[in-house]
C-alpha cells in the first residue's frame, strides 16, 4: 500500500470517528485523531491479522492502552472486515456490542480489555511472553498515551519488559501533550518522555507520529532489535486534521454537532 493510500485511510478513520461519536452522542473523538496514522499503518499494512478468524493464535496482537480512543479502533476493525460498518453507530448503546471501552469478549478483533489507564504495557508484555513461550513468531503492538504514563504500573512493566528482553513488544507513545485535565507538561514532570524509556533500557526512537513513512521506518527498525522492547515516541497533535479539534483539549470528550460533522467532512473530502 502506498503512503498516500495509508494517509487516506487514516483520514477515513478520523471521519468515521467524528460520524460515530456524533451518531452515538457520546465518546472521545480528540484522542483518536492523534493516533490515526499509526492505526492506519498497523491495521492496514503491518499487522498479521485474519478478520475471518479473530482469535487466530499466530496473529499479531494489539493493545490500545489509551482505551478511550476506541472509536478509531472500532472504525479500523469495521473497515478491516471484523464487523459491518453500520455497527459503529451503536457505540456505547445498550443493544450494541461496541462498549464504551474495549471489551475482548464482546468485540471481534479486540485482544484485551482496556480503558483503565496505564495497563497496556504490562498486558502487552504478558502477551509477548506468552507468544514467545509457545514459539509463536509475532509482534505485540501497543499504543499508550502520554498522560497515562503518569501511572506507576507503566514503569513497573517497562522494567520487566527490559528484563525479559521482549523484542517482540513494540509500544507507540502518543505524545500529544494533552490529558483529560489539561496539558501533560503542566500536570506532571513526565517530559522528556524518550529519556525515561531509554533509562529503562528500551530501544527508543523519536518520530513524527503523523508521518506515515517515519512510522513505517520506525517499525522496521524496531523489528531489527530482538533483545530489547521498543518504544516509538510519536510527536502528535490531539484532534489532528479536524480543524476545530486540533490541539484543543475541549475535544477530549465531546460530541460534534451536525454542523461540526459537515466541517470535518469538508476538511477531509480531498484527503480520503
Amino acid at each position: 500500500m502506498t503512503v498516500e493510500e495509508l494517509s487516506r485511510i487514516a483520514n477515513r478513520l478520523r471521519l468515521d470517528v467524528v460520524e460515530t461519536v456524533h451518531l452515538a452522542g457520546d465518546g472521545h473523538p480528540g484522542p483518536c485523531m492523534s493516533i490515526a496514522d499509526i492505526m492506519a499503518v498497523l491495521f492496514f499494512e503491518e499487522m498479521k491479522l485474519d478478520p475471518a478468524n479473530p482469535r487466530w493464535p499466530e496473529r499479531d496482537r494489539f493493545v490500545l492502552s489509551k482505551g478511550h480512543a476506541c472509536p478509531i479502533l472500532y472504525a479500523a476493525l469495521a473497515r478491516k472486515g471484523y464487523f459491518p460498518l453500520e455497527e459503529l453507530k451503536g457505540l456505547r448503546s445498550l443493544g450494541s456490542f461496541l462498549q464504551g471501552h474495549p471489551d475482548m469478549n464482546k468485540i471481534p478483533g479486540v485482544d484485551t480489555v482496556s480503558g483503565s489507564l496505564g495497563n497496556g504495557v504490562a498486558i502487552g508484555l504478558g502477551m509477548a511472553l506468552g507468544c514467545r513461550m509457545q514459539g509463536i513468531e509475532n509482534y505485540v503492538y501497543a499504543i499508550v498515551g502520554d498522560g497515562e504514563e503518569e501511572e506507576g504500573i507503566i514503569w513497573e512493566a517497562a522494567m520487566a519488559a527490559a528484563k525479559f528482553k521482549a523484542g517482540n513488544l513494540i509500544v507507540f507513545a502518543d505524545l500529544n501533550n494533552h490529558q483529560s485535565g489539561g496539558k501533560v507538561t503542566e500536570l506532571s514532570s513526565l517530559y522528556p518522555v524518550a529519556d525515561k524509556w531509554n533509562a529503562f533500557h528500551w530501544h527508543v526512537q523519536e518520530i513524527d507520529g503523523h508521518d506515515i513513512t517515519q512510522i513505517q521506518a520506525a517499525i522496521a527498525e524496531a523489528k531489527k532489535v530482538t533483545d530489547k522492547p521498543s518504544l516509538i515516541a510519536c510527536k502528535t497533535v490531539k484532534g489532528k486534521n479536524i480543524p476545530y479539534m486540533e490541539d484543543n483539549n475541549a475535544w477530549h470528550k465531546r460530541v460534534p454537532t451536525d454542523e461540526e460533522v459537515e466541517i470535518a467532512r469538508e476538511a477531509l473530502k480531498d484527503k480520503i
Binding site: 504490562a122 498486558i123 502487552g124 504478558g126 506468552g130 513497573e156 522494567m159 520487566a160 528484563k163
Partner: peptide, 28 residues
C-alpha cells in the same frame, strides 16, 4: 526455571502480565 516469571516487587504488573499471558492460552 523458564516457567517462573519474576517481575520484582510489582504486584500490579504481575497481575496485568498474567492477564496478557492468559489471552495467549497460557495458564498463569
Amino acid at each position: 526455571p523458564d516457567r517462573v516469571i519474576e517481575v520484582g516487587i510489582a504486584e500490579q504488573d504481575a497481575v496485568d502480565l498474567a492477564a496478557g499471558l492468559a489471552t495467549t492460552g497460557m495458564k498463569p
